[in-house]
Write a protein that binds this DNA or RNA. Structure first.
Lengths: 328, 328
DNA sequence: ATGAAAGCGCTAACAG
DNA sequence: CTGTTAGCGCTTTCAT
């Protein structure tokens, strides 16, 4: 930087002002250009670390997540990273594969890097408990929530997702709609189910317990559950699967019986796992989880909190859109 | 840090020595403990940025990749990150979704953070051309290579993978083995094919052009290609699909004809895309791409180069193991 | 508009 | 083993 100053024949302060776009300082355009030219010629590259030290502001947010465990994490990261870049912030990604000790250690390292705040992203929607240490900086939860509500959180609107799936099937004329649900203890199952119930109730369709089964969140689980439904005396003409992997198994069960999708049995999934939903034949109509958007919103919320513009501690809910393919 | 020194009744240098484990300086254990205790009590957390400034060493590696585009990237990241952590290095991940301009900008930002080196990871094995700017620091390629061989690279041993798949089928007694290959222009296709050829030749099985088809790298492509093979006058009893998505389509084609896997037709895939290979029914035996290991090795190689222990510019090849499931 | 000077939190060299 | 001193590369205040 000194070199740049000398080359441009100005003071170091001037260089600093130019490089930081401090137009308010009253710098002549001519000076400005000279500095820029000198910097370019010298291949000058500001040292972000030194700047952070001087400004007492790192421009970093820490993102902690189990990155590999689920394919979803990357979409959260993408959303967060894109948004962060727009604000000239950096994302320091720490991946902890669900090991609590590693998690604390990871956050510790992030704090040593003086991240301005933390985004904690889960790969499946659930309640989490963060290490105490996370309280040292503003923290936002993404795709998860704090049981005690001490942290603001961004979660998908699962109930609405359940509604959309059911409504779509209803709109296609179905009245007997089976549901293959996830483990009934998790938030996603509870909420998706309540969406399903709401819509049926609104349409005046009585619940039929036989039509609600739950299974292992795998293709095999979906296959077994779908088999149960299809072998009913009065089988459903449509099946809402609470995730795409189970839908994958359901496809097998349906095809095995010589039935066609969607002609004989319509299917709607949940998650929009590209690899499955797009490549299943026929393509799977499914409800998408808004990962990218949650990442974006997480960064925005964090930035607002850091800027003191938000003290909210509530939960923000993001819409789950229906993606139409060919299974309805 | 000054506070810690005062609290412990020692000099700041002493604190620095203790915190950096400079045992060589001859510090009494008693002093050491006092410092550590004071630090803990005060909740002192070293400022990594300040340290980096003083040491002129950031402890960061930059990892640039198209993170979202492919599900594979995360495994490379995991391998790299785990390995980096072991050496107390940080990974700064920059995701560029194949946009050359964004790529240069991303690298520029990494350089401003004074990363000690760069790891450039591709999501599919191919030749890449890096922005000139990457030459400013040691750079290692992962899952890709430089056409001009100017950067050291780590790539999967595709040929060996092709061999393993073919050998497995041979071992199961098959003599008519079909191949559904990828777009013949890409390295993966060329090498996997050559592995396949080698093994057949070694077994004294003459090539049959009819048995080698290529298709779109999708389930539909696999479906179409498998249909072609199965409708041959003398259809294969086993099919080697050059990726799992195509195997997914092949499954459909096989089942549609009332044939059973592996009883009537055996299938081997490539890529080990969990979501597909594991959930397909029956589970798909497939060749795995060693992403995690490539990430690990990338970091190791980079560290060696930075430490001046390696000046190699060649290409390192990593084994692709066969994962047995139930389709053979 | 500019230059001098202090300081960010830490490391490292050196003389005690 | 301690204390002093001089930076690391940059920002920012303040007087000019």
């Amino acid at each position: 930087m000194k070199d740049v100053a000398e080359k441009a024949g100005v003071s170091r302060s001037a260089v600093s002002f130019v490089l930081n776009d401090r137009t308010s300082m009253g710098l002549s355009d001519e000076t400005r250009d000279r500095v820029l030219a000198a910097a370019a010629e010298l291949g000058y590259r500001p040292n972000a670390g030194a700047r952070a030290l001087a400004k007492k502001q790192s421009d970093w947010y820490g993102l902690v997540t189990e990155i590999v465990t689920a394919p979803f994490a990357v979409d959260i990261i993408k959303g967060a990273q894109d948004r962060a870049r727009e604000s000239d912030k950096y994302l320091l990604i720490a991946s902890t594969e669900s090991d609590p000790a590693a998690e604390t250690a990871a956050i510790e390292r992030l704090l040593e890097q003086r991240v301005e705040g933390l985004i904690y992203a889960a790969t499946w929607h659930r309640a989490v408990v963060l290490p105490e240490i996370a309280r040292e900086v503003p923290t936002v939860l993404v795709n998860c929530f704090d049981a005690e509500g001490r942290y603001p959180a961004i979660v998908p609107d699962e109930r609405m997702g359940g509604r959309r799936a059911t409504e779509r099937l209803l709109a296609a004329g179905h009245r007997r709609i089976g549901l293959i649900n996830l483990d009934p203890d998790i938030p996603a199952a509870v909420l998706r189910l309540s969406g399903y119930h709401e819509v049926l109730a609104e349409a005046g369709i009585p619940f039929d317990d036989e039509l609600e089964v739950s299974g292992h969140a795998t293709a095999d689980g979906g296959y077994a559950a779908a088999s149960t439904l299809l072998d009913l005396t009065e089988p459903p003409t449509a099946i809402f699967c609470a995730n795409d992997r189970m839908a994958m198994g359901a496809y097998d069960a349906i095809k095995e019986r010589g039935l066609r999708i969607p002609h004989d049995v319509a299917v709607v999934g949940f998650d929009n796992q590209e690899l499955i939903a797009r490549y299943l034949r026929p393509g799977l109509t499914t409800v998408a989880l808004p990962f990218e958007q949650m990442g974006t919103r997480g960064v925005e919320l964090l930035a607002a909190i850091i800027a003191g513009q938000s003290t909210a501690t509530g939960t923000v809910t993001i819409d789950c859109p229906l993606l139409e393919r060919a299974s309805v």
